[in-house]
Write a protein that binds this DNA or RNA. Structure first.
Lengths: 214, 214
DNA sequence: GTCTATAGTAGGATAGAC
DNA sequence: GTCTATCCTACTATAGAC
């Protein structure tokens, strides 16, 4: 009935859907148990397929782990280019940057946790990608901040350590959410509470660099 | 020759030395591989004893892991009481607090990483201790900051999110050192470089809350 | 493309000699 | 207290039927 090409497309779409379901399951398990603690069985179970079928789609655990990591790093690098906004004033740029980073922590908490596990473990898999993909962007963004300093728009801060602060602070809302939930009560960081967190972080960071003083 | 009691003491001392050597080895392996990735064999190897002998001192992996976690949490809670300094002005208190926290990241990087792995994984072991030991101190410290705000010493910030920022920023110098080394060059965070980091972080945080304006 | 069965291996833990 | 030998479980990965 259906032509060969149409059939293939449908298959391809199904495959894509299943693969992304597998990747989301893997993300969750790697986030909770780390690489070694994650079992292919558990990932398959969450994706509602058999372990053997999982291996059909992703030949082994290493490959699956690598895919999950590349996915989250790709999203991060894609969404976070301070450079794009270099025309804008520091306050607008930083507000946007922090908002995006906080949104990533809210929308991809498991990816963030997998990334954190990986870096803490010494980045055995991700190291080359940090060098090739993250470092160039980091250096461009440093230059943007330096130009703000030269123009007197913000305080004479250390740009590298400033970025470390923004990253660690915003990412902690994903990585350390367990601790925050314990200390504040879980409800304090959902819905409205998360907006308050975003506002608080933005305010602290803007004051930290003296933005908005013109 | 030696009396019974003296002998026992000597044994006890040797035991203590060996146990702390084991704990340091375990800290390192748990930091690099997480709980599941760490093998008792590897820990024993680092401590220069046999796996079976390791089990003689620490009956199983869970127990060893728990000990390592309790040790680092104990050190942190012990050294970080903002309350103790509530008599001092905000700038002095915060300078001291950040300095201590940065020192902990430098001196106990592996402990910090084990802690991070644990929290990211949902704090399955540490949760009760966070509730019983960390939370009360957190609430006292929140009150100290609130009193500063009431007296007009610092900006009207959100104390909880302020602490999250300080913790995540300072701990990232232990947990995310791999990433920092890649981005800045490893030499940039040793010796003098670490002092510069401490200075940069302190400045950013003091400005963030508007301390020192009196 | 999905399943059953199973090979292969790593690692935690125990028993018992010395 | 330390060692050798061994058991047992959990998990990755492969082979082959359907």
């Amino acid at each position: 009935m259906t032509g060969k090409h149409e059939k293939k497309t449908k298959q391809a779409i199904n495959r894509e859907i299943l693969e992304s379901r597998i990747l989301r399951s893997a993300e969750l398990v790697f986030a909770e148990k780390g690489f070694s603690g994650a079992s292919m069985e558990r990932i398959a179970e969450l994706a509602n397929i058999s372990k053997q079928n999982l291996i059909y789609y992703f030949a082994n655990k290493d490959l699956l782990y690598k895919k999950v990591l590349q996915e989250i790093l790709g999203i991060w690098i894609d969404k976070l280019q301070l450079l794009e906004l270099s025309e804008a004033d520091p306050e607008t740029s930083i507000r946007h940057y922090v908002k995006e980073k906080m949104a990533l922590s809210r929308d991809y908490p498991y990816g963030s946790k997998v990334f954190a596990h990986e870096i803490i473990s010494g980045a055995p898999v991700l190291k080359p990608y940090l060098i090739s993909d993250l470092k160039p962007q980091f250096e461009r963004d440093i230059e943007v901040v330096n130009s703000w300093i030269r123009k007197g728009f913000i305080n004479d801060i250390d740009p590298a350590h400033f970025f470390f602060m923004v990253w660690s602070t915003t990412q902690s809302y994903a990585d350390f959410s367990t601790q925050m939930d314990i200390l504040m009560g879980q409800s304090q960081l959902q819905g409205e509470g998360y907006l308050r967190a975003e506002q608080a972080v933005t305010d602290l960071i803007l004051h930290a660099i003296g933005a908005g003083k013109k």
